[in-house]
Computed example of a mutant assay.
Amino acid sequence: MSRELADSLRWSDDGTDLFLGLTDGLSESKFDSASALPNWTRRHLVAHVAANADALCNLVHWAATGEVTPMYSSAEERAASIEQGATLSGPELNRWAHAAASKLGGMMGGLSESQWSAEVTTAQGRVVRATEIPWMRAREVYVHSVDLRLGAEFAELPEAFLHALSEDVIRKRGEVPDVEADLPQRVAWLTGRPSGLDDAPDLGPWL
């Protein structure tokens, strides 16, 4: 299926609302509970999503001004930011996540048609147009909403988003086995999340 900029912007907004709605008001003990990601608590996950918004703001700035501003100065800086964020209290984490998301949304809303066509480089070294930025954010907030283990499931995410995500993951992973499953299960499997597909091969981590 084709994915339009308007789709990505809508999914970015709606996924952000879902993620922040799940984490707002969590007790400290619930922040300290394990997420679905190995060795990460929910506190780590919220710090990661907040830092991701800050990093994507760098790409929006790049697109808007032409000034080269990488997402992260280094992989080490990225990891250190998450670890430092995981030491914050719940209210501090939520304030950071909300502020970073709001800034990113505002900056994306200010891009002109020509700026959306500007090329930027992702943290993985891929050169993409700025129109990929809201899609990158939508993937983060929707998938990590499920990773929070607070009730969100792939089956509850927009079907069109799941189709787009499935195509995106397959494009990046390369050829994958043909596994019979419904769309939410297949997307969970493709993204390396628990899927209930006991006979499907392990594809390894993604995102």
Rank of each mutant, 00 (worst) to 15 (best):
M1Q: 13
S2M: 15
L5Y: 03
L5S: 01
A6N: 08
D7M: 06
L9Y: 12
W11F: 00
S12M: 14
G15H: 11
D17H: 09
F19E: 03
L20V: 05
L20N: 11
L20P: 10
G25S: 11
L26S: 14
S27L: 11
S29H: 13
F31S: 12
D32P: 01
S33R: 13
A34W: 03
S35T: 00
L37E: 09
N39W: 02
W40P: 01
T41E: 10
T41I: 00
T41H: 04
R43E: 06
H44M: 01
H48W: 04
V49H: 00
A51W: 04
A53L: 03
D54F: 12
D54A: 14
L56S: 04
C57Y: 08
N58I: 12
N58P: 09
L59C: 11
L59S: 12
T65V: 09
T65I: 08
G66A: 12
E67H: 12
E67L: 08
V68S: 15
T69S: 14
P70N: 06
M71H: 12
Y72E: 02
Y72W: 15
S73L: 13
S74L: 03
A75F: 10
E77C: 11
R78C: 07
R78I: 03
R78Q: 07
A79M: 12
A86I: 05
A86R: 06
A86L: 05
S89T: 11
S89N: 04
N94M: 14
R95L: 14
W96P: 02
W96T: 11
W96D: 12
A97E: 04
A99I: 07
A100I: 12
A100Q: 01
A100P: 00
K103I: 00
K103P: 00
G106E: 12
G106P: 08
G109P: 04
L111S: 05
W116T: 06
S117N: 11
S117L: 13
V120E: 06
Q124T: 13
Q124V: 11
V127N: 04
P134I: 00
W135L: 04
W135C: 03
R137V: 03
R137C: 02
V141M: 08
V143G: 01
H144E: 07
V146G: 01
D147W: 02
L150C: 04
L150Y: 06
A152M: 06
E153I: 00
A155S: 15
E159D: 15
A160K: 11
F161N: 06
L165W: 07
D168Y: 01
D168M: 02
I170P: 06
R171T: 08
R173A: 03
E175D: 12
E175N: 10
E175Q: 14
V176P: 13
P177V: 11
P177T: 08
D178F: 04
P184Q: 08
Q185I: 08
Q185V: 09
Q185G: 10
Q185D: 06
R186Q: 07
W189F: 04
G196C: 09
L197R: 10
D198G: 14
A200V: 09
L203K: 08
L203P: 06
L203R: 08
G204N: 01
W206L: 13
W206G: 02
